[in-house]
Amino acid sequence: MSGAFGDDVRLAGEALWKVLVASLVLGAGLPAVFALGIRSLAWGAGGEAVDGGTGTAASSGNPVGKVLAVILFLVVAYGIVAGLVFVIASGQGKDISFGHIIPTITAKS
């Protein structure tokens, strides 16, 4: 029994570090990207959106900020869509491959 218990602990450890890495990238990384998007948006809007600064450069706004914000929000949207595809695929008993950037549904190994 202690042998099987040890196996469980070993298997859990193997799964756990992968879960931790994936969760950190998606669960902490994507909100950070989202936050960058919000910041870029505020930079793009200028004026009152940024407080605490000197206001000299920000007051007129900057179109680069808006473009940057759109790109960053698209990255977040990609993450959410990938999550959605994954939920649907696993519901169908399929697995999902992220090897080609666009998530691909594959048969479960």
Binding site: A12, A15, V19, G83, F86
Partner: peptide, 16 residues
């Protein structure tokens, strides 16, 4: 919420 979603999806992907 992002953490909850990520941990759940990553774990079910990895069979945890």
């Amino acid at each position: 919420d992002a953490s909850t979603a990520a941990v759940i999806l990553a774990s079910s992907h990895l069979g945890f």
